[in-house]
Amino acid sequence: MTYEEQVQEELIRWKRKIRKNPSMTGRFTKKWQNKFNGMIPEKFHQVVTSSIKNMVQATIYGTDVTSKDSRLRALPLQEQEEKAKQLIEKFKKTAAVEGAGTGFGGVLLGMADFPLLLSIKMKFLHEVALIYGYDVRDYRERLFLLLIFQLTFSSDEQKQVLLDRVEEWEKERIKLPEKDQYVAHIDWKEFQLSYRDYIDIPKMLQLIPGFGAIVGATVNYHFLDLLGETAINCFRMRAFREESTTN
């Protein structure tokens, strides 16, 4: 079996997992998340909303990205993925260290963790896109990174819709308006609520002084692991789709 055939099988299993009907555990967790929402300081919710809006705007308008010369499209898929997996391990450790440091200090530093973790996640996505050969100076490629982000940190129902968008990305990409028009129509509330719901329970535990250091390190490590898995499979889909259209 070639590496490409092995990867295609892994991709099929991953998509099947995403498309599964919402589990009982997921519905139970959502019920508890709604209860926990009222227990989390309002200031934390404000930090979440502001941080996500700033992150999305910075991603769309961002100009501080690596040059086109850093792209690695010429490398075989296996070599690209070896580099991507090394990158995931690097960022998982970075996120864990950051989560432990902010989690140790309780509520104030716990809230500081949120924008820091977002910046780590987006930096990771920018770098992994370059590994797979995509030019993130194009704002549409940066929108794809946001789509990966949403797919990773959304409810089971939303994941299925977002996976459809990833699979049809090339069609959506060519229809996108200028970035100013796009930003004007972003549903900020929906974007931030889906992410906040996903992270509510672990992040609330991170606000507990001392104990939060353990939670922060573990949770941040896990979040980067999930983001890495989603990113790799999303770029695999694009690679195979582009290959099929050129053959």
Results as ranks from 00 to 15, higher is better:
residue 130 L to D: 14
residue 126 H to T: 09
residue 66 T to N: 11
residue 109 L to Y: 15
residue 147 L to C: 12
residue 57 Q to D: 14
residue 143 L to I: 12
residue 246 T to W: 10
residue 120 I to P: 11
residue 212 G to L: 02
residue 112 A to K: 12
residue 107 V to W: 13
residue 232 I to D: 00
residue 52 I to E: 15
residue 165 R to K: 14
residue 220 N to T: 04
residue 194 S to N: 10
residue 138 D to Y: 06
residue 90 K to D: 07
residue 54 N to T: 09
residue 191 F to E: 14
residue 155 S to D: 04
residue 120 I to K: 08
residue 143 L to D: 13
residue 158 Q to F: 11
residue 148 I to F: 15
residue 38 G to R: 02
residue 61 Y to K: 12
residue 62 G to H: 10
residue 192 Q to N: 11
residue 163 L to N: 08
residue 196 R to W: 06
residue 132 Y to N: 01
residue 112 A to D: 13
residue 136 V to T: 15
residue 123 K to R: 08
residue 89 E to I: 00
residue 219 V to G: 09
residue 95 A to I: 07
residue 188 W to L: 00
residue 114 F to P: 08
residue 3 Y to Q: 00
residue 193 L to M: 09
residue 128 V to H: 07
residue 127 E to H: 13
residue 71 R to N: 06
residue 190 E to F: 07
residue 94 T to S: 05
residue 159 K to A: 13
residue 67 S to Q: 01
residue 163 L to D: 13
residue 69 D to C: 02
residue 110 G to Q: 04
residue 146 L to H: 12
residue 139 Y to V: 01
residue 112 A to G: 15
residue 201 I to L: 09
residue 207 L to S: 08
residue 104 F to T: 15
residue 62 G to V: 05
residue 58 A to T: 13
residue 182 Y to G: 09
residue 238 R to D: 05
residue 216 G to I: 02
residue 236 R to E: 01
residue 219 V to I: 12
residue 220 N to G: 06
residue 136 V to F: 08
residue 99 G to Y: 03
residue 118 L to D: 08
residue 115 P to I: 06
residue 198 Y to C: 01
residue 69 D to S: 04
residue 12 I to W: 10
residue 119 S to P: 09
residue 162 L to I: 05
residue 206 Q to P: 12
residue 57 Q to E: 14
residue 158 Q to W: 11
residue 203 K to L: 06
residue 82 E to L: 02
residue 91 F to L: 00
residue 110 G to K: 02
residue 75 L to C: 05
residue 198 Y to A: 01
residue 213 A to S: 03
residue 112 A to C: 14
residue 229 E to W: 03
residue 148 I to L: 10
residue 239 A to S: 08
residue 202 P to W: 02
residue 154 S to D: 14
residue 74 A to P: 03
residue 221 Y to E: 02
residue 152 T to I: 07
residue 218 T to W: 09
residue 17 K to V: 04
residue 44 F to A: 12
residue 145 L to T: 11
residue 23 S to K: 00
residue 201 I to S: 04
residue 240 F to E: 00
residue 200 D to V: 03
residue 235 F to C: 00
residue 29 T to V: 05
residue 233 N to C: 07
residue 222 H to G: 06
residue 44 F to M: 07
residue 1 M to P: 09
residue 106 G to P: 13
residue 146 L to T: 14
residue 159 K to M: 10
residue 215 V to W: 04
residue 153 F to Q: 07
residue 190 E to Q: 12
residue 246 T to C: 11
residue 116 L to W: 14
residue 247 N to Y: 02
residue 70 S to I: 04
